[in-house]
Design a protein around this nucleic acid. Sequence first.
DNA 1: AGAGGAATTGGGAGCGTTCTCAATAATTAT
DNA 2: ATAATTATTGAGAACGCTCCCAATTCCTCT
Lengths: 355, 355
Amino acid sequence: MDSPLDIEDIARRSGVSRSTVSRVLNNQTGVKSTTRERVLEVIRELDYQPNQAARALTMQRTETLALVMPVFLHYLFGDLYFPAFVRSVYATATQRNYLVTLWMGEKQTDEQWLYQRMIKRRAVDGVLIADAPDDDWLTEQLHIDNIPFVVMGRSSLNNVNYVDVDNRQASRQAVDHLMQLGYRRIGTITGPLNHTAGRDRLAGYTDAHYAAGRPLDQTLIVDGGFTEAGGYTAMQTLLKCGVDAVFAASDQMAIAAIRAIREAHLEVPKDIAVVGFDDVDEADQHGLTTVYQSPEAAGEAMTNLLIDLCLQKTPSVPRGILLPTQLVIRDSCGARLRGQFPNKTNGTRKQGLRE
Amino acid sequence: MDSPLDIEDIARRSGVSRSTVSRVLNNQTGVKSTTRERVLEVIRELDYQPNQAARALTMQRTETLALVMPVFLHYLFGDLYFPAFVRSVYATATQRNYLVTLWMGEKQTDEQWLYQRMIKRRAVDGVLIADAPDDDWLTEQLHIDNIPFVVMGRSSLNNVNYVDVDNRQASRQAVDHLMQLGYRRIGTITGPLNHTAGRDRLAGYTDAHYAAGRPLDQTLIVDGGFTEAGGYTAMQTLLKCGVDAVFAASDQMAIAAIRAIREAHLEVPKDIAVVGFDDVDEADQHGLTTVYQSPEAAGEAMTNLLIDLCLQKTPSVPRGILLPTQLVIRDSCGARLRGQFPNKTNGTRKQGLRE
DNA sequence: AGAGGAATTGGGAGCGTTCTCAATAATTAT
DNA sequence: ATAATTATTGAGAACGCTCCCAATTCCTCT
């Protein structure tokens, strides 16, 4: 009673061979429907499930994914993006009959250990990387060992499968929006330019200018390094150049910029309009117009892509998936002040982005 | 090259049989040290790790644990307790060479699916339950299937392995503290009494009274249901009874109580002292004296207990582990106001609790 | 040197599946 | 009715490991 059932038990009880039971289990064709019913009945009655290890051994496939998370959890769960992302990964994996194992290494040694334990031992079929570490030792290693993986965020390396939001397109849309509202001198606070997201968001800014036939003023492009402090000082620089609007490449920098503007005794959006990127939780409190990206869509896309990768053994050409975004109009861009977007779109989102 | 190495490869390369390699792998005795070195060298050189599925199949042991989390992550990660707990579980498991798979079901159907996929298929050896659900279908089922598991929080059922803080002792200590400070009429806002934590914390309150030879005034015991709203109204009730101190069975209720006190134009701690339980993040901002419990200690204890359970096949008598706590003195109890604990203990913790 | 014993080593079975292929049963066509 | 198909079923091997036990090697002691 204590030792679990095996496929032979089911075979005996239903008067067939284990081959037939196996066929029913994996619902393959070529089993007489009456037989199938009988076997299914026994399986249901005994609540039998095939042994994971045995199945993995023969099939050479564990149907389990690893999810690599940023090292520091408290940093991680500072906003609701990651929890939602993780949930989505789990939901999608579950739907496709996959298990997910969290990879949560602390020190560098843990990383090594986890690699041995999860990858080398073939405890998982593939890896989801939720953050792209700077020295992508992991990425490198996975590549060498030919293990399927998908990273979040467009990688500068090619040959890497990734899922990202369409930073360039989204940024362009944000800047277009400011232009439509009539702003003449639009500055931008960029992320670090050795970072793809930083570059892509700047590219969107320049795209908008080219498309509008406006010249690019290099003095209006200031690096904020994706940090609070960087955003603050960048804004101080921009204030000297006389801008009437600013596109910040992250909400964190945008919020710092607003602070800098207020401290210069100017008003947002009356004197200077601000648009951010990310739509973090605080964005709403600050009335920040920004670009929303869906963690659910990202998790779903990554997971589906990875599972597809795991299932086909022939290594295919790497794919990059760009997810759509949504501009969330709140107060900081001045659209409502100027009577546009009166109160129809009142700064909420999430409708329509995912169908 | 793409197909991973197997034990025979190592055997061939080092000129021994797979039995010997296996012995080296599991570092068993009875291998000549020169042979062992040679094999080890080859293993290191080829970066070989034994196949997880094959090993699990023969050993009847996956060396993987499931960690069942509360369903709603955003609720979960509202404070830093769970992240720290999860980290500790992972660290401990890693140390003992175990993998951890997150069990994160959304709907009831997911629960069923996960049970089949993880438990019935024997994908894990045991289960850690981070929250005790009301209808413990899971607990019940694990019991039936004779799967090792450990729950967080003392269960009302027996035959269950659990780890909990010593709620009773800690509460008694908190109330003792109030008594020592000279408070005469100490009320308590309890958790739900069909909840072991609720009962235990009330028991600590009564223990303190008995030990001090003080009679128990039933009107000073009010149920707050572990909720914000419950704590608030409970405090309003207590205000009518004229208390000079209150022990709330959770910080959430304590903070609500403080609000109620202030709204009655009274001061904390001058007019009424308040002590809470949990030491949530907000406790510090509110200057709340409270009982700290270590998520690291809990995670470590649970994980070690579970692994011990998994390793011995003979079902042992269920064990309950009670963890120590620490009273964190801040302002709300009035100890500092009254010149006690001047500024030596300044409301920090974590030192000394774990060694 | 030879026997006795301990230290090492290797071969075979088994863990619970799936998959291939041959065997059998059922059906259809002649 | 009988051969020719086709649908269904079962037996055996393989997946990569550990464990048991027998075989071999190496010492040690007379």
